[in-house]
Design a protein around this nucleic acid. Structure first.
Lengths: 255, 255
DNA sequence: GCAGGTGGTGTACGGCGTACACCTAATAGG
DNA sequence: CCTATTAGGTGTACGCCGTACACCACCTGC
């Protein structure tokens, strides 16, 4: 019995182990099933013990995000700003893919933790080092948005119906009927989904190459940044050039 | 007493009123404080009564999102695809700004409700009607991502420190000291934040024009789409042109 | 050898979503 | 007109959650 106690005592549980455990648990069961109680159980400890190492659940999540940021590669120095940004974003993306909970965790945080600020600062540094004005860098960071963490919001994980909601296989006829119904109601979605699945000859319903989509948008933005940078874009100039477009719809009318 | 009962009976509560009440409550107190119990209280009814009109909280949220989608203008027909998309996105943005809970609600849903599919379908329709290939439309929808709902993830609501966490005003010296500390640790963030606040001569800490940031990124993307469309972009061609860039970092390595 | 701090414990509270059994008043069918 | 059905509101209860608070065991330095 004292042996048990000693066993528990051997590694007295510290913030590091708590965070590690939380990350592992979230990896396993998802963020929504990560509870203080469950984490405590995982750590072989009573729930309140955790509170000796993090002051509450929010701080636990902040810590998890910080630990994730630690997995992202530092900015490279070899390539120009464009390559550096690109690589870093893709590294962030890999980290996020290792930890499916991370996107939601990042989005849910109010941010502002030192780890997050560090990351953003070094991120902005890549543009500034590449000769971007502070002005352009600012807007460019905004435009990148969540992409700088390596995520897009996935708005249709699988655009076509084959969600396989029914327990096992559906009869081909039923499936065909469903597709027909879909095509009638959502012709455009079906059209673009079909295009996607055909373009690679892949099995229906899995034709969407996430990595390609991600890089498509990323490069579109990076190319845009590059053009603006080359032509000496400034927000002052931009506002002078098209103030009308901005105001036409920009100001929320009183409904 | 029977009068009370009759009063309650007069409008017997239906799905519509439940949804309306939920939207109003969320507008008031925020999504995280929207609970079935609180909503019930608001509606002058016992919690379980709500379940006669929506089967659970998830469905309630789906309904709220659907009602929000109803506030977004239908696509215009006058302007080309670019103007139509632009206007629609900005209309969505206005709807989202009327309902601060909506962004998180949309992100949290697994989507797939008919209302969401309808919206996405009609959205894709704007590109297709503009002569885009289904292929390009597909990728372009992905690139737009959350922007098609009118939101960016706000990654720094106010980049500089003046978060005014202390109850009232801080002494100017203390504030200056904080800024100095910030500048030492986060030189790049401070640089771009300062650029933003100066560019309009606004008060420190509120120099960031969300609407401008949003349109900046939106137009960057739309311009990119336009260029690709004009030059007959296709994903097959794109994949042939730079397969290396995609694979170099694209495949998640085994850590 | 004892004081104080560090870290794990036990109990308890208020909130949540919601299953289930119940009741009541309106409605439809004979 | 009376009765069976049912739509809509009620009450109770369960198991989860985060965490406040009081307590206690051990280790450390005086």
């Amino acid at each position: 019995m004292t042996q048990q106690l000693e066993a528990a005592r051997r590694t007295p549980l510290n913030r590091e182990r708590v965070l590690q455990g939380a990350v592992a648990l979230a990896d396993d069961v998802g963020l929504e099933s990560l509870s203080m109680r469950r984490l405590a159980e995982d750590l072989g400890v009573v729930p309140m013990a955790i509170y000796k190492h993090v002051s509450n659940k929010d701080e636990l999540l902040d810590g998890m995000v910080a630990s994730l940021i630690g997995e992202i590669d530092p900015p490279g120095t070899e390539l120009g700003w464009k390559g550096a940004v690109r690589l870093r974003v893709l590294s962030a993306r890999q980290a996020l893919q290792r930890h499916p909970w991370a996107r939601r965790a990042i989005e849910s945080r109010t941010n502002k933790t030192p780890a997050v600020l560090d990351y953003m600062d070094s991120f902005a540094g890549m543009f500034l080092a590449g000769g971007f004005s502070a002005d352009l860098t600012h807007h460019v960071m905004h435009a990148l948005g969540g992409r700088m963490w390596g995520f897009t919001q996935e708005l249709f994980d699988d655009p076509a119906v084959p969600t396989a909601e029914s327990p096992a296989g559906i009869s081909p006829e039923a499936q065909a009927a469903m597709v027909e119904q879909m095509a009638a109601r959502y012709p455009n979605i079906v059209a673009i989904a079909t295009a996607a699945t055909h373009e690679e000859g892949s099995v229906v319903g899995h034709g969407c190459d996430d990595q390609f989509e991600f890089e498509f948008a990323l490069d579109l933005l990076l190319d845009g940044f590059e053009r603006l940078h080359e032509q000496g874009w400034s927000s002052r100039q931009a506002k002078l050039n098209r103030p009308r477009a901005g105001n036409q719809q920009g100001v929320p009318l009183p409904h």
